[in-house]
Amino acid sequence: MREKLVLGLGGTVDYEIAWDSRVIEHLIREYSIRASELDASIPVMSERDLVVTLLAFLAGGAGGERFVASSDIVETFAARFDRRITLGGTCVRAAMAMQALGVESTVHLVSIDDHVRRLLPAGCAYLCSADHDTTDPHLIVQFSAGARVQAGDIDLDAPHPNRVIYANDPPNERLLLSEGLGEALREAEIFLISGFNVIQDTDLLRERLLDIRQHMQQLPLDAVVYYEDAGFHVPAMSRYVRDALIGVIDVYSMNEDEMQAYLGRPVDLLAVDEVAEALRELQLLIPAATLVVHTKYWSLALGELAASYAASLQGGITMASTRYCYGDDFTERDYREIDSRVPSVLGTRFAADLEDRMGPTVRCLPAFALTVAAPTTIGLGDSFVGGFIAALARR
Rank of each mutant, 00 (worst) to 15 (best):
A261C: 12
T371V: 06
L192N: 15
I317K: 00
T135S: 03
M259G: 14
A158Y: 09
T106I: 11
T86F: 02
L109D: 01
S178H: 06
A79K: 14
P360K: 01
R186M: 10
M216E: 13
R242F: 06
I193S: 08
E277K: 02
G10C: 13
M216D: 14
F350D: 00
S41H: 13
L87Y: 13
A59V: 02
L109E: 12
E183V: 12
V292I: 09
R349M: 11
L156A: 07
H233R: 02
V293R: 01
D136C: 09
V198Q: 14
A301P: 03
G123L: 07
A391W: 00
A278E: 03
L9F: 12
A307L: 10
I165M: 08
R186A: 09
G379P: 05
R22Q: 10
E75G: 01
A122E: 14
R117F: 02
D133T: 07
R29M: 13
I17L: 14
T331R: 00
L58W: 11
S46A: 09
R2I: 04
L192I: 02
E3A: 08
A374F: 11
I317G: 15
V44Q: 09
A307D: 07
E189I: 03
E25S: 01
L365R: 05
A288M: 13
C91N: 15
T134Q: 04
S46W: 05
L50D: 03
